[in-house]
């Protein structure tokens, strides 16, 4: 099989020598992310011999296989067959998801681009903070850096473009916003996204029994707290939880 560009979804294409990509859309939307997560879960559950690893990105599922033990035609047939089993856009989200509530300072010195993000969204800063703090967002995918979640979708008013000029460095735990998504940075990073909040939550904890805090499909809510509250959390944050609470999502 070669790659193809027909706008028919789901679409199967090849990734390098030993990968397949099942794309559910060519733009980010809640149903296509749901489909990508659910289909990845189904491939993992099938545990086919010769599949080396899987992941889900914003709107697609990736699987890597060993072509020496699992011929290309065979894995493509299996994937096609599994795809036909159900409407993945309406599939339930993976089991075992959790809701994280993370104390967050919006604006001020710790998150200096809140005001311009609010203005770009056509809101005053207080209203922007209210909406951002109230919204539960999903871990759409984890990538770019270890443990680092892309979160969304936020309301359409937050579909604001990335900055043309990169901010040279935002710290670990920074909550940044663009294109109706958050990213919660797992390390200090230059970025073109606007720095709207600051947390003490560590996504990547190499010294903890669980190195990665989050799983794709988890939900997060970034609750507004004062700078004093965050400073007192930081003073006692050896586990990296940043004062976050975590509960299982039923169903």
């Amino acid at each position: 099989m070669t790659t193809n560009t027909a706008d028919i979804f789901p679409r199967i294409s090849t990734v390098g020598y030993d990968g397949l990509l099942v794309s559910f859309a060519d733009a980010m939307a809640e149903p296509s992310n749901r489909a990508a997560l659910a289909f990845r879960g189904a491939i993992d559950a099938a545990s086919w011999n010769g599949v080396v690893e899987t992941s889900a990105s914003l709107a697609s599922t990736y699987l890597r296989f060993d072509p020496n033990n699992l011929p290309r035609t065979e894995i493509q047939d299996k994937v096609r067959h599994l795809l036909a089993q159900q409407n993945w856009f309406e599939a339930p989200l993976p089991a075992g998801r959790r809701l994280w509530r993370v104390p967050t300072v919006y604006g001020g010195e710790l998150a200096p681009q809140l005001d311009e993000a609010a203005a770009a969204a056509g809101l005053d800063s207080m209203e922007a903070v209210r909406r951002l703090s109230d919204t539960k967002v999903r871990v759409l995918t984890i990538g770019f850096a270890p443990g680092q979640p892309y979160l969304g979708p936020l309301g359409p008013e937050f579909n604001i473009p990335r900055l043309k000029e990169l901010t040279p460095m935002v710290p670990e735990g920074a909550l940044v916003l663009a294109i109706s998504q958050f990213v919660l940075f797992s390390g200090p990073t230059p970025t073109g996204w606007r720095h709207v909040g600051q947390t003490a939550f560590r996504c990547f904890r190499p010294n903890a029994p669980q190195s990665f805090a989050l799983k794709p499909g988890d939900e997060m809510q970034f609750l507004s707290v004062s700078r004093d509250e965050l400073e007192s959390i930081r003073a006692n944050n050896s586990d990296g939880a940043g004062g976050a609470t975590c509960e299982e999502i039923a169903g």
């Binding site: 990734v15 390098g16 020598y17 990968g19 990509l21 060519d26 733009a27 980010m28 992941s55 990105s57 914003l58 709107a59 697609s60 990736y62 890597r64 995918t141 990538g143 770019f144 850096a145």
Partner: peptide, 28 residues
């Protein structure tokens, strides 16, 4: 749309000059 990366991918940056991606490449 940001999409999965594997080592060996030849990526075109904003200026259109190629990079061959190696073992510590980004994942997407």
């Amino acid at each position: 749309l940001s999409e999965v990366i594997t080592p060996g991918d030849i990526q075109m940056t904003g200026t259109g000059s190629p990079f061959i991606l190696l073992p510590e490449c980004q994942t997407t």
